[in-house]
Design a protein around this nucleic acid. Sequence first.
DNA 1: CTTGGCAAGTTTGAAAACCAAACCCACCAT
DNA 2: ATGGTGGGTTTGGTTTTCAAACTTGCCAAG
Lengths: 152, 152
Amino acid sequence: MKDARPCSIAGTLALVGEKYSLLVLREVSLGARRFDQLVRNTGAPRDVLATRLKRLVDAGVLEKVAYSDRPRRFEYRPTRAGLDLEPVLLTLMAWGDRHLNAGDRPMVLEHSGDHELVPVVTCAECGEEVAHDDVTAHPRAAGWTVTGPTAA
Amino acid sequence: MKDARPCSIAGTLALVGEKYSLLVLREVSLGARRFDQLVRNTGAPRDVLATRLKRLVDAGVLEKVAYSDRPRRFEYRPTRAGLDLEPVLLTLMAWGDRHLNAGDRPMVLEHSGDHELVPVVTCAECGEEVAHDDVTAHPRAAGWTVTGPTAA
DNA sequence: CTTGGCAAGTTTGAAAACCAAACCCACCAT
DNA sequence: ATGGTGGGTTTGGTTTTCAAACTTGCCAAG
């Protein structure tokens, strides 16, 4: 997925935006780490899963660890970079819960063992929840002329 | 993208996870709202863009508004549901900034006009930043046997 | 009144990705 | 030997993607 602009959103999507990649990350975060589990739980065709796993390992998001020699077998674990993608999964889930499955969520998350996790994006500087109107974009790289009448 | 499990992450990705959809959302959020602008700024082929836009409008994420009759021309605006996807864009961008472009970010966001926006996912219940180890999953729907030795 | 240009798509034909099913390999248990 | 398991790779057919060319409706200039 090449983008016309230099952009971290596009860059991240180029890595994990292909079909099934984020579902693999979900599974691996939840503890399902073997090839056949990933096939079952994501629904990905085996060959597609194989290429995704290669890509994610190359990108340093997962690591392939042998859990048995003779027969040699592997599992896939999230690296630090992989765990750092959890916020993406949480915001995707929050949106789906609100706009797709409002009323009966397929899964509920518990936070610190004593309350429900309600994910919100806030600003680490001021602690406030981020609202659309409070954000202004400042391009630093070339290629960012926002050609629009309603440019933000 | 059909998933083997009922899941809000998979559901959301089924809607906005196809190639270019989130880049379209980025552009529309930034103010670029016409067809040709979206072609230029996302790099999507025209026909792909046309199908993505139809899908996003059908899903209620964008709305198609005529800005001129005779010649009839349209722009695409984010709905509430569309703006609610901004947290996803912010977390994707944050990850890319940290793991892809560390050091020279292509774009910086300003918050409330007086400081840099540093997006973090927190829990609305307790206000704490969400760390991987503090989260436990509680499936509510069928299809969620986490078949793993290391199940979380 | 014909030519040119712009915006928003649609059409076309070839290349790439996806898919399900079958296959392969190493090993272990029966 | 036979069957089962885990982790893939191969095969062949369907679906998407792609870039480029084309279409439609309108206005402006020559």
